[in-house]
Design a protein around this nucleic acid. Structure first.
Lengths: 113, 113
DNA sequence: TTGTTACTTAATTCTATGCTTAACCAAACT
DNA sequence: AGTTTGGTTAAGCATAGAATTAAGTAACAA
């Protein structure tokens, strides 16, 4: 299974909501049922279930149902996509800053008497 | 200046759109004017300007106007907030997986004859 | 001074999101 | 069998998001 195309849009969209990040934090501690996850929030259970759907479609969370209880857990590999996107940009930017630094150093050299 | 509270909601929201990520990629290469940034996109200039506003309010991009040209550039430190959030979760998850590994190893030990 | 360039502002439209309540279903108790 | 528990489905609503077009402003160029 596990057949969703990992997608940066869905990923970042999923992370852009504080409720969803709180759910992720809760699941970082241990897997949990839907109603356990819903308990801390001042919103209806269907609302939480909708957040879970967003998290699942992003690939960050998976779940399976046993009896009448659905248990949710983190999908640790999922974050690596977002992580890599960010890391790539950061290193690119740092490189550019380095080149700028070199250029400024050279310019300073030229201006030395 | 630079007085926006860095905010994960705004940050991830800003990153959740492909046009905005493309703008970031373009700016990773070098600073650019608004119309330069707009050129590659099949949308109106005001639409791009609105994307730029989102990027600016997230802190990822800054700009200043000189004459009639507004020049935009990446704010490299801005990404570190998102980066850290992700890294924190990843390490937490890995730790938990390690503990699970230890537990399974112990269990295996117990079951050894 | 007239035109062109480079935005800026405003109004509008359409869709997506986040939430609600109400009704429903099926597993687990009593 | 009847009730509670855990979750699901569906419909509706209000706000936010992504785009448009049209009109306006300010800098620079001829």
């Amino acid at each position: 299974m596990l057949n969703q195309t990992p997608n940066l849009d869905l990923m970042f969209q999923a992370l852009a909501d504080p409720t969803r990040r709180a759910i992720i934090d809760r699941l970082s501690y241990s897997p949990a049922s839907v109603s356990e996850l819903a308990k801390p929030f001042a919103m209806s259970l269907p609302a939480v279930v909708q957040h879970l759907a967003v998290l699942e479609s992003s690939g960050l969370v998976t779940s399976q149902k046993l009896g009448r209880v659905r248990t949710c857990q983190i999908q640790p590999e999922a974050l690596s996509l977002a992580e890599q996107w960010i890391n790539d940009r950061r290193t690119m930017w740092v490189k550019r800053l380095d080149r700028l630094g070199d250029f400024l150093a050279e310019t300073a050299d030229d201006e030395r008497p």
